[in-house]
Design a protein around this nucleic acid. Structure first.
Lengths: 262, 262
DNA sequence: CGTCTTTTTGAATACTGTCAATTTAAGTGG
DNA sequence: CCACTTAAATTGACAGTATTCAAAAAGACG
């Protein structure tokens, strides 16, 4: 398990050394510019004026590669960057007092991680790549300077964080008031929508996370997740083959959520 | 149920009319200044330099009174202000599809409400006073202008929001991985700490919220909340008389949380 | 004083968790 | 390339916890 990704920015480490040691943070020699990123409609520049996106471009975010299973940052690390997912999938998690992990989110391309670190200058959760991934590292201080300097970009960070608060609200509702079938249905429909927004099929996809990770996120045990998948399959709502999912009856699955009135 | 509080700032409404209609937002003729507020160490000015607190003072936040049971704002209302609780207690809640409510937080003196509205310019939850309460209305746009203009105040809003994200993380952990006793213990210990920080007794207090509201917040039914209170009393951890709570064994109650490894 | 709300408690049910066994897939090394 | 090991997922049986339904008690309020 590599902890090298926790250190200095990737570009400080020679490619050669990265290759020799097999570290996951091998340098992507190119820096990224938002204007011609295929995720610009979903990511940080979403809703911005052209001139403001150009100001983002001036920051030339450095890219960082993260291998499947390794951490982008860990709970307690100094907070310097927020990260935009370019490719791959991440989970964020907290460590419980007894050592178990609690998964707090899954992140797809164009989504931003690390905003919980602003509060105390340290990351409040860990981010782990679920497959080989690629992120933009966005220096937080630069971003807030930019946001202070230009009225059009004002509150850019604030709006992003508020969005995160709203996201967590809906997860709280889920955890607080739904049963196993409703939770899994909500999870799958949410994932389906996000995949659709990214140009992937909303009805057929490959889960990057294990049953245990889904269960941790949804507040249920992995066996219950597995049983609920099987139940949905028997009801004709899904076709499940391990992590390969096909939503056979999207309307029916949505209906499983409306039924939320046990 | 008054919806007048959803309208223009309190000062725009004559005192007389407020008295006549019994509206909850009767004008507090005085405006508030942070420098000599007894909650300044807990509230917005927390951690600020004197000069920055003076800048806050220049905003002269208007006060608003909210009667027990009425709303300060509702889900969907236009977002203009964030609110600092001066006295009293609030709950924030979301409405579920089937009409039930999901409580998302409880707020004491010095705590800030409404940050979830920044994302989309509308409040994402409703705030209801649990007893007669008093708030400072903080115009959000003024606050972010101030935050952009002075480096020392930079990110003031961002840090507050990030703190809210972290708070919700811990609630997710609670909902995702604890049983009924652990949830209630966590709730009571959290409340105890916050009361202590405000100069109240950490071991003896009056709950402002009903069993149903506690249950909604903690993801369990009101009967289960009641039973768990009874169980704690039988274990000698609490003395419970309706909403009057006395923590008889703080160490034991804390231990109930460490036991979280069912 | 009666009505309404809140809280408590009991009994039965339903759901999820726990434990255990099996299957499948993916790596590892001979 | 195949036997072996390891991890992930499925399934069954059973236990335990929380929910549901119901009834009663205790305040709050007009």
């Amino acid at each position: 398990m590599s902890i090298a990704v926790l250190e200095a920015p990737a570009r400080a480490i020679p490619i050669l050394r990265a290759l020799m040691t097999g570290e996951s943070n091998a340098v992507a020699p190119l820096k990224s510019v938002c204007s011609n990123c295929h995720l610009r409609e979903l990511c940080l520049p979403c809703g911005m004026e052209c001139t403001d996106v150009e100001r983002l471009d001036s920051m030339m975010f450095s890219r960082r590669r993260v291998k499947a299973g390794s951490n982008l940052y860990r709970e307690g690390d100094r907070f310097q960057y927020i990260y935009a997912v370019r490719s791959g999938t991440f989970k964020t998690s907290l460590e419980l007092a007894d050592g178990r992990e609690q998964v707090s989110g899954f992140y797809l391309g164009g989504e931003l991680m690390g905003l919980d670190g602003v509060a105390h200058g340290k990351h409040a959760s860990s981010a782990t790549a679920l497959d080989d991934a690629d992120v933009c590292a966005i220096p937080y201080t630069h971003l807030s300077e930019l946001s202070a300097a230009y009225p059009g970009m004002q509150n850019i960070v604030s709006r992003l964080m508020s969005r995160e608060i709203v996201r967590e609200h809906s997860l709280m509702m889920l955890l607080g008031s739904m049963n196993a079938e409703e939770r899994l249905a909500a999870f799958l429909l949410n994932l389906s929508q996000r995949l659709k927004a990214r140009g992937y099929s909303p009805i057929e996809f490959h889960l990057r996370m294990s049953r245990a990770e889904i269960g941790s996120y949804l507040g249920m045990k992995l066996e219950t997740v597995s049983r609920t998948f099987s139940a949905f399959q028997q009801q004709g709502l899904l076709e499940v083959d391990k992590r390969h999912i096909c939503i056979a009856d999207l309307v029916g699955l949505t209906h499983a959520l409306d039924m939320r009135m046990h």
